[in-house]
């Protein structure tokens, strides 16, 4: 079994970046000075990812105000809406408002990706975007389009995005889908979600496509998750009991969100090893991606970085002495 390490969602802003962005808002700091700190902090996150041995690089997505903002600020038909609670957390996002049929703006997402991911960094980059079901479900839909049709349409637009980004050298795409496990689609909603992912799959070619779910128990969503044509399915183990989560992976990899950003307490590498070994005994999957269950920016930067070292320790423990991973 291959063990990989991945990070999902934005990395917390460093205390220096917190001060700088606050001061920027208060007119006490210049945009140029803040930009310098962003760039330096992105490099620090890349260095951390390198030390952890992540297979893909995120550079932290530190500049993104929330998951949806690159889309709601740049795509046609969208506007940035009111502050809205981000699931069961004390963090908030600005709800996208869709007041007309959505239109993708070429180049808009690419220009908002973290600097270290661009150019030569693209091949190792993990592009993280909202999944079509979560995007369709959390926006304020005033476009008149039925929800299922909208999910499918957004899937097609995101597929176009993937085509463009592949042309720029990007090869790994992660779809953040907390809504799949907190408001699991059924019936026509499930069908439109699968259709949306088929469109993305057609555009993705041989790229790695990841669906990462969080904030909810993935077990009730298994029937939908099992149908999604993606390379990796990620679940949040703070919400999903690994003992009761069974899914027919059909060659796909399983993402295990073993780091819980709701607490600064360190996870026990031994417990992670036991969970993975149990999966091994059950004969699946061929590949496990260990990562954080929910976005790390529920933590301050320093505790987040400390907690992540458990991932490397768990992978080492799962790797036989001859260097080959079990």
């Amino acid at each position: 079994m291959e063990i990989r390490i991945t990070l999902t969602g934005p990395f917390p802003r460093s205390e220096e970046l917190v001060r700088a962005t606050r001061d920027l808002d208060r007119g006490r700091q210049s945009p140029e000075a803040v930009e310098e700190i962003y760039a330096r902090t992105e490099i620090e996150v890349v260095d951390l990812e390198r030390r952890l041995g992540t297979d893909r690089c995120t550079a932290g997505y530190l500049r993104w105000a929330d998951l949806f903002r690159p889309i709601s600020e740049s795509w046609g038909g969208f506007a940035v809406g009111p502050i809205t609670r981000w699931f069961e957390t004390n963090t908030f996002y600005r709800q996208p408002i869709l007041h007309a049929p959505p239109e993708r703006t070429p180049g808009a997402i690419a220009s908002r990706l973290p600097l270290p991911l661009r150019g030569e960094g693209a091949a190792r980059a993990l592009v993280i975007l909202p999944g079509p079901y979560t995007l369709a479900g959390l926006l304020d839909n005033r476009s008149g389009e039925a929800p299922q049709a909208l999910t499918h349409r957004l899937g097609r637009l995101l597929a176009e995005e993937v085509r463009e980004l592949r042309g720029l050298g990007y090869r790994s795409f992660e779809w953040a889908e907390p809504l799949l496990v907190t408001r699991t689609p059924t019936g026509p909603s499930a069908e439109s979600t699968v259709e949306a992912y088929r469109a993305i799959h057609d555009a993705a070619g041989d790229s790695t496509s990841i669906v990462w779910t969080y904030f909810g128990d993935a077990a009730p969503a298994v029937s939908v998750l099992a149908r999604l044509p993606v390379s990796v399915i990620g679940v949040d183990l703070a919400e999903t009991d690994p003992a009761s989560f069974e899914i027919d992976l059909r060659g796909r990899a399983l993402g295990l969100g073993v780091i819980d950003p709701r607490t600064t307490l360190s996870e026990d590498p031994g417990e992670i090893v036991r969970i993975v070994r149990r999966l091994q005994e059950q004969g699946s999957p061929r590949e496990v991606w260990l990562g954080n269950g929910a976005p790390l920016d529920l933590l301050p930067a320093e505790p987040a970085a400390k907690k992540l070292h458990v991932l490397a320790a768990a992978r080492t423990a799962l790797t036989p002495a001859n260097g080959r991973r079990s």
Binding site: V18, T91, F92, R94, T264, P300, P303
Partner: peptide
């Protein structure tokens, strides 16, 4: 207190454990 967590945009609060 363990550090700042973003509430939204450039708004943060100092969070304790």
């Amino acid at each position: 207190f363990v550090g700042h967590v973003r509430s939204f945009d450039n708004k943060y609060y100092l969070k304790a454990a």
